[in-house]
Design a protein around this nucleic acid. Structure first.
Lengths: 111, 111
DNA sequence: AAAACGCGTAACCATACGGTTACGTAATTG
DNA sequence: CAATTACGTAACCGTATGGTTACGCGTTTT
């Protein structure tokens, strides 16, 4: 049982949650202790702690223990693999977009 | 109840599943009927049908009914919003801000 | 040394998710 | 016009997910 699938898989999963994306955005301002991060969100500290664990497993953040504090720092490297994934589609929204506009407009928008 | 959160949210959620990412990759080759898509994966047709619904709601694919077939086509436009999101991090992995060497060293070797 | 702090983990709960089988429906075919 | 085809949807099931409260453990503080 592979507890950790492909690294890329963990990254996409981690990014799927809006709170985790906000944590990443917050960490762009610099390292922050776990408690300070939790203080920014309307959920409990343990909830944030679990989000941080997922982000750690995806290697999107790294932790440094400093005294009794745990500082979290952004590690954007894994985002590069997402960037690479998207690259394969980039040419499509440049070339086929005009084609598709007609297609989209003729659809009855449900959902 | 908000039936559809932010569009970007739906996109990130849609991309979180590996099967859905594979469906998108498959559709880069061109439109395909739902059945043909399902035939490519080791899961049942209804399972794929549900994946397609999520992709539709995220507007990553568009459907065209042609007779009794339903052709699905890639719509890469929503990926642009992901691309834009990543852009905010791109500079981090390009500049020294993304360099964690110092960070890691201070973690193992204090004093 | 005891108290307080900072943070992760365990246990638990409700809902979401991905899968299945059974069925419904619109379009084609014989 | 009945049978078949190509789908989506409904109902159901086990597991994952995100939240909570209770607790434990190492680190400061007093």
């Amino acid at each position: 049982m592979p507890q950790t699938a492909l690294p890329q898989e963990a990254v996409f999963k981690a990014l799927a949650d809006p709170t985790r994306r906000e944590i990443l955005a917050l960490l762009r301002q610099g390292r922050q202790p776990a408690g300070a991060i939790a203080g920014r969100f309307p959920v409990s500290r343990p909830a944030i702690s679990k989000h941080l664990r997922l982000l750690r497993e995806a290697k999107l953040v790294v932790e440094a223990r400093e005294g009794r504090a745990r500082l979290y720092q952004l590690n954007p490297a894994p985002l590069k693999s997402v960037d690479d994934w998207i690259a394969a589609y980039r040419r499509y929204w440049r070339t086929q977009l005009g084609n598709l506009r007609h297609f989209v407009e003729t659809q009855t928008d449900e959902a």
